[in-house]
Design a protein around this nucleic acid. Structure first.
Lengths: 335, 335
DNA sequence: ATCCTAAGTGGAAACGTTTCCACTCACAGT
DNA sequence: ACTGTGAGTGGAAACGTTTCCACTTAGGAT
């Protein structure tokens, strides 16, 4: 591989001049610049990223930690981040967690990995992180933002929807459609955002005089398959409900399958409501009524904040983008 | 950030000794080793990845190019690669393409990016690559494997299922179930693997005396949404078929929705068959009959080959893992 | 003529590792 | 006593950039 010295020799200039041409920094005569550019072409010179990072201590790269590779939830967010980053000429390196149970350790490892790779800033997703974990990340790389997790000590660096309000909105929508008997499929206990939306949902029902303790509930792990088995378990116990609220869309999609296997139809025999608003919900049978969380926008704002932090930009950052119920066909209007 | 020199000073040894302790390479006295380890702890020393790469010219990292971030197809493959890589103590850096149209350019850019980052080897997915593109990649980084693309000049480095045979198997299965009138939703023209499975499918029908030219076809872009509109277009033209073969599962899922919107039921009025065998097909309504391509295994073999290439390992590499039809409920048995 | 400025330039130093070579011991074999 | 041998060690050189400083030159102001 050709080095900058080879280029300099070939162009008959010093290495400083070559560096200036490449970076477009200092003054260079047109004459020298063109000779350098030619030499770069001829030698197929590519600057060594490692040497650059070593010297500058900057890499123009943002590191992203995502708890899971697979699944329909994270990839659109990743896509939004990636697209924005490209627009500003920066790069992205992603690290993934393995399972939901190992999320905490995975996130810590990921933060280490990404920081070691010279990332100028970090975006960390994951709702199972404990305050100590977040401190740890902050120590590793103070320039970070949290997506879908709120940490009291780092309020400005946290970007998350109001899950409590969104859960409440779901309950209200179902209530107004005439439903009075409910069941829920919740996510893992470790997931703080799941807890919040469940509290919002159940709390609103309580306001209408329904005892949260009396609402049948099953727990899933956010995967479609877990939604299916949870729905079946619920149906096997007792079919005392007309509406089933799921903590995320993927479980709701699984629930659709589970309900069908039980010989029931949606929304004829039972209404199903999802949460998140992933694209696929538009194409299920029947199309899924869900709570649309503006994930792409939230992610973009988080990234903007991080870019401002890392590179002194001043991109717009909006907080509190509201969620809204997306009516489709999986919920019956009883009244 | 503490450097190796700081550690050496604190431990009262030379930098060489510290380096040897960290790498576990040369001989070091137990006494010195423990002093060094202590100093590392105390200073919270983390070796600079950039300096290492610069010096060694190796990074223990494999680069992966994936044409699209979103979508249910690539992520399980990515997951398989990631898991295997972790098992062998290597790292992964991923780069993504933006759209299917820009795949060629994206792949080239991606290969450049990943090579610059010091990846020891590359896994490149994408079926739209032209021979010249592949040459270009080979020049950038000779240690690479192609996933789902066959290049004559790099046969040993190519890992792809036999799409022709798999397409033929789909046709045979449908025929044996008693279907005689067909329609297809194909993928983009630029996708070579789509062409192959379509040739396999249509060719087999031809063997049974059905004129491929007479089979109604619509083109999608592999997305669920495109499957939906394609199905509707097909149905609007003329409903002369009993079985609809889709070039991938995601379009098949969209087709399921499209068929329902047209007021028809699957498999009662129309049978739908997918291709790939993504996990979600088990949970659609109705569960989708599809051609199961062993993507995870193929990806793992490709990675094994690459690891052998890069690090002199001798991991097992199997080629020609067969596809098979996965019967579920979206195809009616007419006979 | 003399000074000052600014454009243009070359090259040494620095970034933080690994590797290699030269050196010192201690100890075993003659 | 004299030589090998090999474990243990320190430190210089190298990896390929960027940055900074010192230097030359040309041109305008005095």
């Amino acid at each position: 591989m050709a080095t900058i010295k080879d280029v300099a020799k070939r162009a008959g200039v010093g290495v400083g001049t070559v560096s200036r041409v490449i970076a477009g920094s200092g003054p260079v005569s047109a004459e020298a610049a063109s000779r350098v550019r030619r030499a770069i072409e001829e030698l197929r010179f590519r600057p060594s990223h490692a040497a650059r990072v070593l010297q500058k201590g900057q890499s123009q790269t943002i590191g992203v930690f995502v708890p899971l590779v697979h699944g329909a939830f994270y990839t659109p967010i990743l896509h939004a981040i990636y697209t924005t980053l490209r627009a500003y000429g920066r790069h992205m390196v992603v690290d993934f967690g393995q399972t939901l149970e190992s999320e905490r350790q995975d996130a810590l490892d990921g933060a280490e990995f990404l920081t070691d790779r010279g990332c100028d800033g970090l975006i960390v997703m994951g709702t199972a992180l404990k305050p100590a974990d977040i401190e740890h990340i902050a120590e590793l790389q103070p320039k970070f933002v949290l997506l879908n997790r709120c940490a009291p000590h780092f309020r400005a660096q946290c970007f998350a929807p109001d899950h409590h309000a969104a859960g409440a909105a779901a309950a209200r929508a179902l209530w107004e459609a005439g439903h009075r008997r409910f069941a829920v499929i919740e996510g893992p206990k470790s997931s703080l955002d799941n807890q919040q939306r469940m509290r919002g949902f159940l709390g609103t029902l309580a306001e209408h005089g329904i005892d949260p303790e009396g609402v049948p509930r099953e727990q899933g792990d956010f995967s479609p398959e877990s939604g299916r088995t949870a729905a079946q378990a619920l149906l096997a116990r007792a079919r005392t409900f007309t509406a089933l609220f799921c903590a995320n869309d993927e479980m709701a999609i699984g629930a659709l399958a589970g309900v069908r296997e039980a010989g029931l139809t949606v929304p004829g025999d039972l209404s199903v409501m999802g949460y998140d608003g992933i694209d696929l919900t538009a194409l299920t049978v029947p199309p899924l009524t869900t709570v649309l969380i503006p994930w792409r926008q939230i992610a973009t704002c988080a990234l903007h904040h991080l870019l401002n932090l890392c590179y002194g930009m001043s991109l717009p950052v909006e907080r509190d983008i509201p969620a809204q119920v997306l009516w489709r066909e999986s919920v019956a209007r009883l009244s």
